[in-house]
Amino acid sequence: MSEQKGSFGIQGTGDTSGYGGLVRSSFSPTSAQKPYGSYFDEVTDELERAFPEFNDAIEKVVVDRGELTLHIKRQRLFDVAKTLRDTETLRFEVCLGVSGVHYPEDSQRELHAVYELLSMTHNRRMRLEVSTPESDPHIPSLVEVWAGTNWHEREAYDMFGIIFDGHPALTRILMPDDWPGHPQRKDYPLGGIAVEYVGATIPSPDNRRSYR
């Protein structure tokens, strides 16, 4: 696992005890085998019926800790999402949001967008996961499918730099409009930003005087 730097002088893995020998490895969940259990078989079967190119669009189906995750090719995300919303037997009518995750070691799939879906009709939950390379961080926007993803996609853009194609107004939402960089990426340091006041600048914690 890559080193995270800049947390108030903590270097390396951040193992403050120094005795843990902390080595973290990248994690990639394995594909589940049928039957998946619970309502997951029904959901995947119904999706396959309503969306014939299922095998082409879905990279893998992960069932972990009682939760269903479909890893989807980004080109097919919009169609899959629309099918999940509109098919009567699926009816995932609520998208609870978009959460970005940055895996710098996952080559050509560094940026992930995770969508939590909820079906109030059938009282079910599931998750969509889409990945995109850092060099070409484009994912189709789902605002047309679920209007509520509007701000969530703006947040994922702000924090991770994922560009959601087709979003009506993809601008920063939490950080100032002129902020450089995307703070939630793993290579973006914590701290490290000097605080500016009128007439004075306080250096960031890792740039202050050190007595070591």
Partner: peptide, 17 residues
């Protein structure tokens, strides 16, 4: 990621939505 620190924490905040 198997470590002693979260790899990612995201809150789906009701106020935000």
């Amino acid at each position: 990621d198997g470590g002693t620190r979260p790899y990612r924490v995201h809150f789906r905040a009701p106020s935000f939505s």
